[in-house]
Design a protein around this nucleic acid. Structure first.
Lengths: 118, 118
DNA sequence: TCCATATTTCAATAATCCTTGAATTATTGA
DNA sequence: TCAATAATTCAAGGATTATTGAAATATGGA
């Protein structure tokens, strides 16, 4: 992820409706969720949700696929991960030791990380 | 970090000048950098840099302290770390196993993380 | 006190972004 | 083909944000 992509992702996440949509889709998992259901879950009008879904797609944070009459949106974990990496690289750039507490942030995945590192 | 703070931080980082400022200050480390020097490094006018520094401070990403005639700005690693955690918790919320690759992002601090986990 | 330096504040303009509701497109089943 | 469902697109507005240059504030030294 380069700076241009990161800027686009930050802009996408800097809006309350879009941030909610991303969270809803992350929880929905790899099966994703239809646009109408996203509108329902977030209590936002279909046309407005559609506007924000398009923004999120432009930034690579979600993808879409048609399935019959519905359009299914899915969170893009790679982009989310890329954004986290971008932030961490920034953070570690100059001062790795200051950044250590940030690395400990992996706590939310900690059990699995420990497994992996053995 | 709650959603409100995360939104504010995302908005702060979603602007090319501000993102550059943050990167400059992160590299500058705990000693920080005077506003004028930030303006020089980023090639932005003093008044404009001042505007963006204020935005970054409002979002908690940087702090300021006066030192003689200069005002020294310093990156706030806690906020950066909090934002990373916020993203990771989102990401791990529903599907920890999908999120694992993201945990591996700690690679940029990997040697130190491994040390710590032993 | 006066001047120079460092930075911020202000007002005005320009640019971008968000929301709304109506109209449009696409898909499916009768 | 027609009607119903699911979603997008469009135009208009209102709101927010960014940039500029000039004026104001704060500090330290002559």
């Amino acid at each position: 992820m380069d700076q241009r992509q990161a800027l686009s992702a930050f802009a996408a996440l800097a809006q309350v409706t879009r941030l909610q949509i991303v969270r809803v889709l992350v929880v929905a998992g790899p099966d994703g969720m239809a646009a109408g259901m996203v509108a329902e879950k977030t209590a936002v009008s279909p046309s407005n949700v559609s506007f924000h879904l398009k923004e999120l797609e432009r930034s690579g944070l979600i993808t879409q696929k048609r399935e019959s009459r519905s359009i299914i949106y899915t969170a893009n974990y790679n982009t989310l991960g890329g954004l986290i990496r971008f932030l961490m690289e920034d953070c570690c750039a100059g001062n790795p030791e200051i950044c250590l507490p940030v690395a400990a942030v992996a706590a939310c995945c900690a059990p699995k990380v420990e497994e992996k590192l053995q």
